[in-house]
Simulated scan of single mutants.
Amino acid sequence: MSPPPAAALSPVATDSFHLLAPLSGEAHEALLRRNAFLAAIAGAICIGFSAIFVRLADTGPAAIGFWRLLFALGPTAVWAYAEYRVGQARRRRAGAAGPLRLFTVRQFFLAAFAGLFFGADLIAFHFGLVRTTTANALLLGNLAVVFVLIFGWLCLGERPTRGLMAALVLALVGTALIISRSAGAHGGDAASLIGDAFCVVAAVSYGGYVIVTRTLRRNDGAGGVGLGGGMASFISSATGAIVCLVWAVATDEVIVPQSLKGLLAVVGLGLVAHAAGQGLTTVALGRLPAGLVSTVLLLQIVVGTSLAAMLFGEVPSLMVMIGGLMVVAGVVVARPPRTPA
């Protein structure tokens, strides 16, 4: 029997055909952005464990960063190798000759520069964490979203949306509440205020790390392709580990973990907080604006402060909770667009 004429096909039949057709370019891009957003959320949850592991570690602040990055090198090396194999297979299918280039000179130095920023972030954050409360350290350290919005606008041309600008205002007001509470609660205690100040320095450093990583991961706009997440993480982690080790040796810190608990803490930092948390963040930065990713990362505050309250009895004061809620509200305000820009 001959098939019916095209005019006889029902709308249901044609719609079903389109459902089976490949996604359009715009729909595919929207799907990738949603997946990147989920990766950023998962990364924020993993990074939220970092303050707890730091509390349990028994080495110096910079040494903690060294072990964290050292134990992350194995998973990131496997990730980079897997990316290389996939890239090689694609080149063979496309008929390209010669091996795949791992990275350009520019990409290597940018990844190393990101590692310098991340090493500085770890040293400053760990130094500040032992001098202030976990809630203060997490909330002030996550002020990085402010600097990412500013740097991303000035350096990458990623103009913040109204939602991101609202998140910026909320973060600033919340931070002011936290600092004022810290100064009042400790009667101007210099140690607490110094700890808060170092956490803000860590936020600036992490903001630089995010911007450089975003530059590495996105396409360069001239037909090139951004550096793969695995290779970017491996180079930056190796560089950051060297920075932390040099600082630890220069300041005569305790470098080797003194107990099994301390060893497990730095292993957890390397595998959970860095390899998984920062790795997923690097994936998200390949598809989403830096300001949006850094805003989503504020969710780690919920994880960190909740765990600190359960494990260490560090229940945040009302003022700190209000400031924290104002900062976290930025995640809701700055939710990603449903369709690609």
Rank of each mutant, 00 (worst) to 15 (best):
L177E: 08
G221N: 10
T133N: 00
I194T: 01
V204F: 15
T213N: 03
S205Q: 05
A144S: 14
A120P: 07
G187F: 12
A202V: 01
D121I: 06
V130W: 04
T213R: 01
F151T: 02
G163T: 11
L170Q: 13
R159K: 14
T133S: 04
G207E: 03
L170F: 14
A124Q: 13
L168N: 03
V201Q: 10
G187Q: 11
D121P: 14
N142F: 00
L156A: 10
R214A: 13
L139M: 14
T215H: 07
S182Q: 12
V173N: 13
V204W: 15
R181A: 12
A222T: 13
H126P: 00
L177A: 15
G229V: 01
A135H: 12
F147N: 01
L170R: 10
V200Q: 12
V173T: 14
H186L: 09
A197Q: 09
W153G: 06
A124F: 14
A166N: 13
D121Y: 08
F117I: 12
I211P: 00
G163L: 10
L140I: 13
L164R: 07
R131G: 04
V145Y: 02
F151C: 06
F125D: 02
V146D: 05
A185Q: 11
H186I: 05
L143S: 15
V225C: 10
A197M: 12
L168Q: 02
N142S: 00
G221S: 14
A202Q: 02
I179H: 02
A135S: 15
I123A: 01
A120H: 06
T161N: 11
R214Y: 11
T161A: 13
G152L: 09
A176K: 06
F117M: 15
R131Y: 04
L227K: 03
L154F: 08
T175S: 15
Y206L: 14
L122D: 08
V145P: 05
F117V: 07
